[in-house]
């Protein structure tokens, strides 16, 4: 019997989940959140990085750039279904260097002059994972190549693609996000019964968390898996061809050890 679903408000259709039962269950959930799906993983493709605009004439000594650091869905979908909160640890010279973003989109804008490493800690909803995850991003304000002059129109953009992997996720989580575009859920094993999905919180109450209409969207990098796969396939072909050639040469040498030279022709 699955017990994992956390109903914060309402929406559970199981008869036994009255409030008191749930509360007592939740205390146990801290240790083990329901039934876990073995040999199964759910992943969330994300992109994290920063966009930095040079302020040009408005730049002062300590505030030469305005930048935004963020964690977004790889296709700009709302990460709020998985991530509850993001904490950005800024350089200690900022006021309140620990910035907490409680709702999506998980982004933070600041002004400054220096580059430094930002630690982004992601906290997940309680049915997803009780452990936080750290991302490390080196804030970039100045363009890499000297030839590229600083302009106020074109920002410096540095983004990394990655995937958050949840091995052996709880069935409640899988049920909840099964059809959500932000999450990669592989085909479920046959005969698996998921509990009916339960909303973490009211959808209507939340503001939109996706980054599709963000003013920064035009600067976002496009990450193409297909390109990467093609490149790898080409490389593998080359290596395999070479392996085959070497094998031929080896057999030739083995075949005529007393001969003067092995000439594979």
């Amino acid at each position: 019997m699955p017990n994992s679903s956390l109903t914060k408000k309402h929406g559970s259709d199981r008869p036994e989940s009255s409030g008191s039962v749930l509360k007592s269950q939740r205390s146990k959930l801290v240790q083990s959140s329901g039934k876990r799906l073995k040999d199964f993983e759910v992943s969330v493709p994300i992109v994290y990085g920063n966009v930095a605009f040079w302020l040009g004439r408005k730049a002062s000594e300590y505030q030469s750039h305005e930048w935004t650091v963020y964690v977004r869905g790889a296709t700009n979908e709302d990460l709020g279904v998985v991530i509850k909160r993001a904490v950005f640890q800024l350089h200690s010279s900022f006021n309140n260097p620990t910035r907490v973003v409680e709702s999506p989109p998980f982004e933070l804008s600041e002004a400054g002059w220096g580059e430094f490493e930002i630690v982004i800690t992601l906290y997940f909803h309680s049915d997803v994972c009780d452990k936080p995850l750290n991302l490390y991003h080196h804030l970039k304000l100045y363009p890499e190549d000297e030839s590229c002059t600083m302009s106020t129109k074109k920002p410096v953009v540095v983004e990394s693609y990655d995937e958050i992997v949840f091995p052996e996720p709880s069935d409640a989580f899988v049920a909840r996000v099964q059809n959500h575009p932000v999450v990669n859920v592989p085909r479920l094993p046959a005969g698996l019964n998921l509990p009916s999905p339960v909303q973490v919180e009211d959808v209507e109450k939340r503001k939109r968390g996706d980054t599709k209409d963000s003013p920064l969207t035009q600067w976002f990098t496009n990450f193409s898996e297909a390109d990467e796969l093609l490149k790898l396939a080409a490389a593998r072909q080359q290596v395999q061809a070479h392996i085959a050639k070497l094998r031929r040469q080896l057999t030739l040498i083995d075949g005529q050890p007393q001969q003067s030279k092995p000439t594979p022709e």
């Binding site: 493709p45 693609y161 990655d162 995937e163 990450f223 193409s224 490149k231 790898l232 490389a235 080359q238």
Partner: peptide, 14 residues
Amino acid sequence: LGVNLKPKVPTKAV
């Protein structure tokens, strides 16, 4: 071979 030491788009397949 012109392959990134660390894949740029590290999906499961990649």
